[in-house]
Write a protein that binds this DNA or RNA. Sequence first.
DNA 1: CTCTTTGCAAAGGATTTGCAAGCTT
DNA 2: AAGCTTGCAAATCCTTTGCAAAGAG
Lengths: 141, 141
Amino acid sequence: MDNQDWNKQRVLETLRDAGVNPTSQRVEIGYALFSSCAHLSAEEIMQRVNADYPVVSKATVYNTLGLFADHSLVREVIVEPGKVFYDPNVSMHHHFYHVDTGQLQDIPASSLQISKLPDIPAETEVENVEVVIRLRQRVAH
Amino acid sequence: MDNQDWNKQRVLETLRDAGVNPTSQRVEIGYALFSSCAHLSAEEIMQRVNADYPVVSKATVYNTLGLFADHSLVREVIVEPGKVFYDPNVSMHHHFYHVDTGQLQDIPASSLQISKLPDIPAETEVENVEVVIRLRQRVAH
DNA sequence: CTCTTTGCAAAGGATTTGCAAGCTT
DNA sequence: AAGCTTGCAAATCCTTTGCAAAGAG
Protein backbone atom coordinates (compact mmCIF):
# COMPACT_ATOMS: atom_id res chain seq x y z
CA MET A 1 0.00 0.00 0.00
CA ASP A 2 2.92 2.36 0.52
CA ASN A 3 5.99 1.65 -1.51
CA GLN A 4 4.26 0.47 -4.60
CA ASP A 5 4.30 2.83 -7.50
CA TRP A 6 1.51 5.25 -7.23
CA ASN A 7 0.13 6.66 -10.38
CA LYS A 8 -2.89 8.76 -10.99
CA GLN A 9 -4.94 5.87 -12.29
CA ARG A 10 -4.37 4.00 -9.07
CA VAL A 11 -5.25 7.05 -7.02
CA LEU A 12 -8.46 7.34 -8.97
CA GLU A 13 -9.38 3.77 -8.20
CA THR A 14 -8.50 4.20 -4.57
CA LEU A 15 -10.76 7.19 -4.28
CA ARG A 16 -13.59 5.45 -6.04
CA ASP A 17 -13.21 2.41 -3.82
CA ALA A 18 -13.45 4.67 -0.80
CA GLY A 19 -16.64 6.22 -2.08
CA VAL A 20 -15.06 9.52 -3.01
CA ASN A 21 -15.94 11.00 -6.36
CA PRO A 22 -12.56 11.14 -8.10
CA THR A 23 -12.41 14.62 -9.56
CA SER A 24 -9.17 15.75 -11.13
CA GLN A 25 -8.29 17.96 -8.18
CA ARG A 26 -8.86 15.13 -5.74
CA VAL A 27 -6.73 12.80 -7.81
CA GLU A 28 -3.93 15.36 -7.88
CA ILE A 29 -4.11 15.88 -4.14
CA GLY A 30 -4.32 12.17 -3.51
CA TYR A 31 -1.38 11.55 -5.76
CA ALA A 32 0.76 14.15 -3.99
CA LEU A 33 -0.22 12.65 -0.67
CA PHE A 34 0.08 8.96 -1.37
CA SER A 35 3.20 9.05 -3.47
CA SER A 36 5.04 10.86 -0.72
CA CYS A 37 5.96 8.81 2.28
CA ALA A 38 6.18 11.94 4.39
CA HIS A 39 3.94 13.69 6.83
CA LEU A 40 2.82 16.78 5.02
CA SER A 41 0.90 19.84 6.06
CA ALA A 42 -1.94 21.18 3.95
CA GLU A 43 0.36 23.96 2.83
CA GLU A 44 3.06 21.56 1.68
CA ILE A 45 0.57 19.45 -0.19
CA MET A 46 -0.72 22.49 -2.00
CA GLN A 47 2.79 23.51 -2.94
CA ARG A 48 3.50 20.10 -4.38
CA VAL A 49 0.31 19.94 -6.35
CA ASN A 50 0.76 23.45 -7.69
CA ALA A 51 4.51 23.16 -8.25
CA ASP A 52 4.36 23.65 -12.00
CA TYR A 53 1.18 25.63 -12.48
CA PRO A 54 -1.95 26.32 -10.44
CA VAL A 55 -4.08 23.21 -10.10
CA VAL A 56 -6.00 23.60 -6.87
CA SER A 57 -7.00 26.38 -4.56
CA LYS A 58 -6.34 26.45 -0.87
CA ALA A 59 -10.00 25.94 -0.06
CA THR A 60 -10.10 22.80 -2.16
CA VAL A 61 -6.99 21.43 -0.51
CA TYR A 62 -8.55 21.79 2.92
CA ASN A 63 -11.92 20.49 1.84
CA THR A 64 -10.37 17.54 0.10
CA LEU A 65 -8.09 16.60 2.97
CA GLY A 66 -11.07 16.75 5.31
CA LEU A 67 -13.01 14.55 2.93
CA PHE A 68 -10.14 12.07 2.70
CA ALA A 69 -9.93 11.97 6.47
CA ASP A 70 -13.66 11.25 6.73
CA HIS A 71 -13.18 8.33 4.41
CA SER A 72 -10.08 7.08 6.23
CA LEU A 73 -7.81 7.75 3.31
CA VAL A 74 -5.51 9.82 5.47
CA ARG A 75 -4.91 10.22 9.13
CA GLU A 76 -4.71 13.63 10.72
CA VAL A 77 -1.89 13.92 13.22
CA ILE A 78 -1.88 16.86 15.57
CA VAL A 79 1.27 17.62 17.48
CA GLU A 80 1.42 21.38 17.67
CA PRO A 81 -1.36 23.85 18.12
CA GLY A 82 -2.43 25.10 14.75
CA LYS A 83 -0.60 22.48 12.76
CA VAL A 84 -2.08 19.36 11.26
CA PHE A 85 -0.03 16.75 9.50
CA TYR A 86 -1.64 14.43 7.01
CA ASP A 87 -0.33 10.91 7.14
CA PRO A 88 -1.04 8.71 4.13
CA ASN A 89 -0.33 5.68 6.26
CA VAL A 90 -3.64 4.83 7.88
CA SER A 91 -2.62 1.51 9.30
CA MET A 92 -1.95 1.17 13.01
CA HIS A 93 1.27 2.91 13.97
CA HIS A 94 2.60 5.69 16.16
CA HIS A 95 4.88 8.70 15.92
CA PHE A 96 8.01 10.33 17.12
CA TYR A 97 7.82 14.08 17.08
CA HIS A 98 11.10 15.97 16.94
CA VAL A 99 10.29 19.14 18.80
CA ASP A 100 13.41 20.94 17.60
CA THR A 101 12.88 20.33 13.93
CA GLY A 102 9.10 19.95 13.76
CA GLN A 103 9.49 16.61 11.96
CA LEU A 104 7.24 13.62 12.45
CA GLN A 105 8.62 10.10 12.15
CA ASP A 106 6.74 6.83 12.08
CA ILE A 107 6.98 4.23 14.78
CA PRO A 108 5.91 0.87 13.36
CA ALA A 109 3.08 -0.72 15.31
CA SER A 110 5.35 -3.62 16.16
CA SER A 111 7.91 -1.43 17.96
CA LEU A 112 5.54 -0.17 20.57
CA GLN A 113 3.20 -2.35 22.49
CA ILE A 114 0.46 -1.29 24.80
CA SER A 115 -0.15 -4.17 27.14
CA LYS A 116 -2.95 -2.72 29.16
CA LEU A 117 -5.73 -0.43 28.10
CA PRO A 118 -8.08 1.32 30.49
CA ASP A 119 -11.78 0.57 30.63
CA ILE A 120 -13.64 2.67 28.12
CA PRO A 121 -16.30 4.99 29.51
CA ALA A 122 -19.89 3.85 29.02
CA GLU A 123 -21.68 4.72 25.80
CA THR A 124 -18.46 5.44 23.97
CA GLU A 125 -16.23 3.59 21.59
CA VAL A 126 -12.63 4.02 20.60
CA GLU A 127 -12.03 5.97 17.45
CA ASN A 128 -8.28 5.60 17.65
CA VAL A 129 -5.31 5.41 19.94
CA GLU A 130 -2.56 7.92 19.31
CA VAL A 131 0.86 7.60 20.82
CA VAL A 132 3.26 10.47 20.27
CA ILE A 133 6.75 10.34 21.70
CA ARG A 134 8.18 13.81 21.83
CA LEU A 135 11.93 13.89 21.28
CA ARG A 136 14.40 16.65 21.76
CA GLN A 137 18.01 17.03 20.77
CA ARG A 138 20.21 15.49 23.39
CA VAL A 139 22.70 17.90 24.85
CA ALA A 140 26.09 16.92 26.21
CA HIS A 141 25.79 16.11 29.91
CA MET B 1 -0.03 17.78 44.81
CA ASP B 2 -3.58 17.77 43.45
CA ASN B 3 -6.31 17.50 45.98
CA GLN B 4 -4.62 19.37 48.73
CA ASP B 5 -5.98 22.79 49.43
CA TRP B 6 -4.37 25.27 47.18
CA ASN B 7 -4.09 28.79 48.39
CA LYS B 8 -2.25 31.71 46.93
CA GLN B 9 0.61 31.46 49.38
CA ARG B 10 1.23 27.93 48.31
CA VAL B 11 1.07 28.89 44.65
CA LEU B 12 3.63 31.58 45.33
CA GLU B 13 6.00 29.09 46.88
CA THR B 14 5.46 26.65 44.06
CA LEU B 15 6.35 29.27 41.50
CA ARG B 16 9.40 30.35 43.44
CA ASP B 17 10.55 26.77 43.80
CA ALA B 18 10.25 26.35 40.06
CA GLY B 19 12.37 29.43 39.46
CA VAL B 20 9.49 31.60 38.28
CA ASN B 21 9.29 35.11 39.65
CA PRO B 22 5.93 35.06 41.47
CA THR B 23 4.22 38.24 40.35
CA SER B 24 0.63 38.77 41.38
CA GLN B 25 -0.70 37.94 37.92
CA ARG B 26 1.26 34.71 37.83
CA VAL B 27 0.02 33.73 41.24
CA GLU B 28 -3.56 34.37 40.18
CA ILE B 29 -3.14 32.33 37.02
CA GLY B 30 -1.37 29.58 38.91
CA TYR B 31 -4.10 29.53 41.50
CA ALA B 32 -6.86 29.25 38.90
CA LEU B 33 -4.95 26.47 37.22
CA PHE B 34 -3.82 24.39 40.16
CA SER B 35 -6.98 24.64 42.22
CA SER B 36 -9.01 23.33 39.33
CA CYS B 37 -8.68 19.67 38.56
CA ALA B 38 -9.87 20.25 35.03
CA HIS B 39 -8.23 20.65 31.66
CA LEU B 40 -8.66 24.28 30.85
CA SER B 41 -8.00 26.33 27.75
CA ALA B 42 -6.22 29.66 27.97
CA GLU B 43 -9.56 31.34 27.42
CA GLU B 44 -11.20 29.50 30.31
CA ILE B 45 -8.32 30.29 32.62
CA MET B 46 -8.59 33.96 31.79
CA GLN B 47 -12.32 33.90 32.46
CA ARG B 48 -11.78 32.34 35.85
CA VAL B 49 -9.06 34.73 36.86
CA ASN B 50 -11.04 37.73 35.69
CA ALA B 51 -14.40 36.49 36.96
CA ASP B 52 -14.93 39.33 39.44
CA TYR B 53 -12.89 42.12 37.95
CA PRO B 54 -10.08 42.45 35.39
CA VAL B 55 -6.85 41.00 36.73
CA VAL B 56 -4.87 39.85 33.72
CA SER B 57 -4.79 40.54 30.02
CA LYS B 58 -4.96 37.90 27.37
CA ALA B 59 -1.32 38.44 26.43
CA THR B 60 -0.24 37.81 29.99
CA VAL B 61 -2.30 34.65 30.23
CA TYR B 62 -0.60 33.23 27.16
CA ASN B 63 2.84 34.37 28.19
CA THR B 64 2.40 33.00 31.66
CA LEU B 65 1.07 29.65 30.55
CA GLY B 66 4.00 29.33 28.19
CA LEU B 67 6.34 30.19 31.02
CA PHE B 68 4.72 27.63 33.29
CA ALA B 69 5.02 25.01 30.61
CA ASP B 70 8.72 25.78 30.20
CA HIS B 71 9.17 25.21 33.90
CA SER B 72 7.08 22.02 33.91
CA LEU B 73 4.38 23.52 36.06
CA VAL B 74 1.72 22.58 33.54
CA ARG B 75 1.50 20.21 30.67
CA GLU B 76 0.18 21.31 27.33
CA VAL B 77 -2.16 18.81 25.76
CA ILE B 78 -2.99 19.22 22.12
CA VAL B 79 -5.88 17.27 20.70
CA GLU B 80 -7.43 19.53 18.13
CA PRO B 81 -5.79 21.94 15.78
CA GLY B 82 -5.87 25.37 17.32
CA LYS B 83 -6.80 24.25 20.79
CA VAL B 84 -4.40 23.74 23.67
CA PHE B 85 -5.47 22.40 27.02
CA TYR B 86 -3.42 23.13 30.10
CA ASP B 87 -3.22 20.24 32.49
CA PRO B 88 -2.08 21.04 36.02
CA ASN B 89 -1.28 17.38 36.52
CA VAL B 90 2.28 17.01 35.30
CA SER B 91 2.81 13.50 36.58
CA MET B 92 2.81 10.60 34.17
CA HIS B 93 -0.67 9.91 32.86
CA HIS B 94 -2.66 9.80 29.65
CA HIS B 95 -5.92 11.08 28.23
CA PHE B 96 -9.24 10.18 26.78
CA TYR B 97 -10.52 12.74 24.35
CA HIS B 98 -14.25 12.81 23.75
CA VAL B 99 -14.47 14.01 20.18
CA ASP B 100 -18.17 14.79 20.40
CA THR B 101 -17.97 16.98 23.47
CA GLY B 102 -14.41 18.26 23.25
CA GLN B 103 -13.74 17.10 26.81
CA LEU B 104 -10.47 15.67 28.02
CA GLN B 105 -10.42 13.03 30.73
CA ASP B 106 -7.45 11.65 32.61
CA ILE B 107 -6.29 8.08 32.30
CA PRO B 108 -4.24 7.20 35.38
CA ALA B 109 -0.76 5.96 34.55
CA SER B 110 -1.62 2.64 36.15
CA SER B 111 -4.54 1.93 33.79
CA LEU B 112 -2.47 1.96 30.65
CA GLN B 113 0.77 0.16 30.29
CA ILE B 114 3.22 0.39 27.49
CA SER B 115 5.22 -2.80 27.52
CA LYS B 116 7.53 -2.08 24.66
CA LEU B 117 9.04 1.17 23.56
CA PRO B 118 10.88 1.67 20.29
CA ASP B 119 14.55 2.50 20.13
CA ILE B 120 15.07 6.21 20.38
CA PRO B 121 16.83 7.85 17.44
CA ALA B 122 20.46 8.79 18.03
CA GLU B 123 21.25 12.14 19.61
CA THR B 124 17.77 12.57 20.97
CA GLU B 125 16.08 12.04 24.27
CA VAL B 126 12.45 11.58 25.23
CA GLU B 127 10.70 14.69 26.39
CA ASN B 128 7.45 12.86 27.01
CA VAL B 129 5.17 10.12 25.87
CA GLU B 130 1.63 11.13 25.11
CA VAL B 131 -1.16 8.65 24.68
CA VAL B 132 -4.51 10.02 23.60
CA ILE B 133 -7.44 7.68 23.16
CA ARG B 134 -10.06 9.32 21.03
CA LEU B 135 -13.59 8.31 21.97
CA ARG B 136 -16.83 8.89 20.20
CA GLN B 137 -20.42 8.40 21.28
CA ARG B 138 -21.48 4.85 20.66
CA VAL B 139 -24.44 4.56 18.34
CA ALA B 140 -26.94 1.71 18.39
CA HIS B 141 -25.88 -1.02 16.02
C1' DC C 1 -31.36 21.23 -15.76
C1' DT C 2 -29.86 19.67 -11.27
C1' DC C 3 -26.35 18.35 -8.28
C1' DT C 4 -21.63 18.48 -7.12
C1' DT C 5 -17.35 20.72 -6.92
C1' DT C 6 -14.32 24.59 -7.20
C1' DG C 7 -12.11 29.10 -6.24
C1' DC C 8 -11.84 33.53 -4.56
C1' DA C 9 -11.89 36.48 -1.03
C1' DA C 10 -13.51 37.43 3.35
C1' DA C 11 -14.21 35.77 7.94
C1' DG C 12 -12.79 33.28 11.93
C1' DG C 13 -10.39 31.74 16.12
C1' DA C 14 -6.33 31.02 18.74
C1' DT C 15 -2.03 32.67 19.70
C1' DT C 16 1.96 35.90 19.24
C1' DT C 17 4.18 40.17 18.92
C1' DG C 18 5.65 45.24 19.15
C1' DC C 19 6.02 48.64 22.01
C1' DA C 20 5.03 51.97 25.46
C1' DA C 21 3.88 52.25 30.30
C1' DG C 22 4.25 50.25 35.08
C1' DC C 23 6.88 47.85 38.84
C1' DT C 24 10.82 46.45 41.47
C1' DT C 25 15.16 47.15 43.26
C1' DA D 1 18.39 54.15 36.14
C1' DA D 2 18.14 49.06 34.71
C1' DG D 3 15.56 45.13 34.03
C1' DC D 4 11.66 42.47 34.23
C1' DT D 5 6.54 42.41 33.55
C1' DT D 6 2.24 43.91 31.83
C1' DG D 7 -1.50 45.33 28.61
C1' DC D 8 -3.33 46.98 24.55
C1' DA D 9 -3.95 46.55 19.93
C1' DA D 10 -2.37 45.01 15.78
C1' DA D 11 -0.52 41.26 13.42
C1' DT D 12 -0.02 36.46 12.16
C1' DC D 13 -1.03 31.78 11.22
C1' DC D 14 -3.92 28.18 9.89
C1' DT D 15 -8.36 26.91 8.66
C1' DT D 16 -13.27 27.56 7.45
C1' DT D 17 -17.06 29.68 5.12
C1' DG D 18 -20.23 32.20 1.74
C1' DC D 19 -21.34 32.43 -2.54
C1' DA D 20 -21.19 32.69 -7.41
C1' DA D 21 -19.23 30.39 -11.36
C1' DA D 22 -17.71 25.99 -13.57
C1' DG D 23 -18.20 21.12 -14.46
C1' DA D 24 -20.50 16.52 -14.66
C1' DG D 25 -24.25 13.48 -15.79
